[in-house]
Structures are given as C-alpha cells and as structure tokens.
C-alpha cells in the first residue's frame, strides 16, 4: 500500500500524518492523532457516532478518507471543553438534561449539535428533531438530547418559542 502525507489541523493544532490511501479520517484521528473521542458505531455512515466537523460541516469521519481531509480544519469532541476540562455550554446542557447514558454516541451528537448551534438559524422542535435524526442513540430515547440542545439553543437565542 502506498502511503501519503496529509496535513490538516485538528482543534486548531497542526497535524502531519502518513496514511494509506484507504485510511479513513476516523481511523486516522483515533490511531495517528491519538484522539479516541471520535467513536465508530457502524463504519457505514448510518449511526453518526463518528461525526466531526470538517471545515465547519458535520461529516461522517468513517466515510471520508484521510487524504480527502488534506488541508482541512477539523474539529472533534476533544476541542469542546476548556483546557482545564470545564465543559462548554452545550456539554453542560447534555449533563444537566441527562442527554447521555453509555456515552458512546455522545461525541457525534455533540459535534452535530455544535454545528446546529453555530448556524445562523433559529431552531424549532421540528427542525431540531429532524437534524438530530442524522445520528442514532440506543440508550436515551432522544428526549434528553433534544432537551439539552433546546436548552443550549435557548441560551444562545436560537430557539423559536
């Protein structure tokens, strides 16, 4: 297998990795960058556990090759909290509203929701549920996740009352 040098930033830090052409972005983040917060639930693009932001767009890291991310700015769950570990407002809302149980799907939901809250759009119950339907959670029945993002959106002034 030929190897390729790929450079990108992850959470603002420059990374230079050598990968096979077939290496996915998810495996590269986990194995070459040591960022195991991005989880693999299905490796075929359905569950969304591996969702990261690539140039601010939510992306299934299992469906993207690392070489396709050359030059990109990538954000992962590890970049959300403050350096001292303090949770950001969205993460705190997930804890407050019991938006996680086993925590395996959580990084994907956090990155998807980060994107939702950064868009210049007001969310409603319907648009929120439709967007969250990109990802699968097996533990919560979604209500805690919906409540968490709703609460964070409210605080950010992005909720249609």
């Amino acid at each position: 297998m030929s190897r390729h040098v790929v450079t990108f930033t992850v959470n603002g830090v420059a990374q230079r990795v050598e990968v096979e052409a077939r290496s996915t972005l998810a495996d590269t983040l986990r194995e070459s960058c040591g960022l195991t917060g991005t989880h693999l639930g299905c490796e075929h693009g359905v569950c969304g556990a591996c969702t990261v932001l690539v140039n601010d767009i939510p992306t299934r890291a299992c469906l993207m090759f690392a070489v396709q991310a050359d030059g990109a700015a990538i954000r992962t769950v590890e970049g959300l909290a403050a350096p001292d570990g303090t949770l950001n407002a969205l993460q705190q809302a997930f804890q407050d509203h019991h938006g996680l149980q086993c925590g395996f799907c959580t990084p994907g939901f956090l990155m998807l929701s980060t994107w939702l809250l950064e868009r210049d759009e007001v969310l409603s119950e319907a648009t929120l549920r439709e967007a969250l339907a990109s990802n699968i959670c097996r533990c919560t029945g979604y209500q805690g996740i919906v409540e968490a993002v709703r609460s964070a959106a409210r605080k950010a002034g992005r909720w249609a009352e």
């Binding site: 960022l35 769950v77 993460q91 804890q95 925590g103 990084p107």
Partner: peptide
C-alpha cells in the same frame, strides 16, 4: 451524573 464529564469531553475509555 458523575460519569458524564469525561464522556462529554471524549475522554471516556472504551475497549477500542
């Protein structure tokens, strides 16, 4: 839950 902060930071430790 005490379990949450690590999981929310992507710092949980799963088998993989």
């Amino acid at each position: 839950r005490f379990e949450d902060p690590a999981l929310l930071r992507g710092e949980g430790r799963f088998t993989a």
